[in-house]
Write a protein that binds this DNA or RNA. Structure first.
Lengths: 249, 249
DNA sequence: TGCGTTTCTCAGGAAAATCACAGACTCTAG
DNA sequence: CTAGAGTCTGTGATTTTCCTGAGAAACGCA
């Protein structure tokens, strides 16, 4: 399958299949709260979601739903993640899979799996991360063109989702993982006010229980690196949230 | 569902469903005074309202009413807000939800709620805020087009509900949160006299206990920023209220 | 294991926004 | 023309929101 992108009037970039129909994603996890969280977030991306709670359900659903990508928890009640993967591959040889795994779970098994073009994230994950990885997988699973899609641009600020490189006015900028995800979220929603709650929900992992002012803190970090001495692009809307927009304006 | 807008002869912009029928909203709260307040305000928007006082009622009503959006109090007598959300989602996977939550309960419980594109407001809320958020949710839940819907225009004055940007004659103007809401209310009712009581009821939270002349005060603030040196757009109708209209006229 | 980096909490302080109060001003009815 | 009702706005107190330095804890990597 190959994909294309359209940019809606809102400035949101959407992934679509060649025939214009929405991308289909199958979510497999035994915890209902996880499948619901993911379904909600992925649906918001404009994708069509189906979910399953165990391996057999996953195979069955995959057979008739024919998803373009699968999110698969490695820990399922009825069968091992690898077994599910094997059967899945028999049905859909080319579908890319995003594995969900516990933080401390085996590294070697997963490492081998991602060699085939698949990818994984560790629990607890942030929604931004899952969405980004899925977008990457889906993009790459199609005819391998459209590399440019992985680059976000706002004014003279540039962020490459593949290489994780960020630069402003041509000058490279080093960001930490969290800073990068925050900036990506801002840049995927340029000129739109994002509340601290929204940011927290998307950029931090779902089990984050800390103070909401981490958002303020990381905005502060970003400003030091992005806006340092330059015309500021990150703006505070007191009582509402933050937004990013090109300097000229 | 996708939505479209029509502009009535009075200048009021209304959200409608594709087939021209009114938008349907379900309001869920156990306090009767709240559901009545909301129902009245939302009906005034031209929407069709149903209300429920507890979780089971909400699910039942949702099933047959099939609302386009739901306003859901997090504190219900019979079940937890998240439980209601889960069941609601099973019935209507794509319906956006606006949560009502107590001011101090925000930090802990809200986690994840805005992730799927849902939104929330804290009690005590202002009706303008609820209406604005609902409009946003409904707009975004449809086919994601129509950016123009988020921009209010009166004469050379422009207000963008997404970016919270306001400009007159192309020149950007910074407004505080309250000023912004007041101006939005005026601009959503151009050429119509709005009494101080109406303004107080819509723009300030329902439990506001202060002096009624905050309205005068904020009108004064707005004039300094909007009308400063220019042909005035905000007019006083002595003994009646205020109205906004294009300068030319 | 140990060292540098990253993430996050805490708390002080700065800045901004909200609002009460009161006096000045303006309009209009009589 | 004048008094009173209605409206406008300066001043400043209070509250809310935001920013950021300092340091503790967790992490990653050699």
């Amino acid at each position: 399958m190959s994909t294309m992108t359209t940019t809606s009037p809102q400035g949101r970039t959407e992934l679509l299949r060649p025939d214009g129909s929405p991308v289909r994603v199958l979510v497999v996890d035994d915890e209902l709260s996880i499948t619901e969280l993911l379904s909600m977030a992925l649906r918001y991306e404009g994708w069509q979601i189906r979910s399953a709670g165990d391996g057999t359900g996953a195979i069955q659903t995959a057979r008739e739903f024919r998803p373009d990508a699968v999110v698969l928890d490695m820990m399922l009640p009825d069968m091992d993640g690898l077994t599910v993967l094997g059967r899945l591959r028999r049905e859909l040889p080319d579908v890319p899979v995003l594995f969900l795994t516990a933080k401390d779970a085996v590294e070697d098994r997963i490492a081998g799996l991602t060699a085939g073009g698949d990818d994984y994230v560790t629990k607890p994950f942030s929604l931004e991360e899952v969405v980004a990885r899925l977008r990457g997988l889906i993009r790459r699973s199609g005819a391998a063109d459209r590399r440019s899609d992985s680059v976000l641009v706002v004014g003279d600020l540039t962020l490459d989702e593949d290489s994780h490189e960020v630069s402003r006015a041509g000058e490279g900028i080093h960001l930490t993982a969290t800073e990068f995800e925050l900036l990506r979220f801002l840049m995927r929603n340029p000129r739109r006010v994002l509340s601290k709650a929204q940011i927290l929900d998307r950029v931090w992992s779902y089990d984050f229980g800390g103070q909401a002012n981490v958002v303020e803190l990381y905005i502060s970090y970003l400003r030091r690196k992005i806006d340092a001495g330059r015309e500021p692009m990150i703006h505070t809307r007191r009582g509402a949230g933050y937004l990013i927009k090109p300097a000229a304006s």
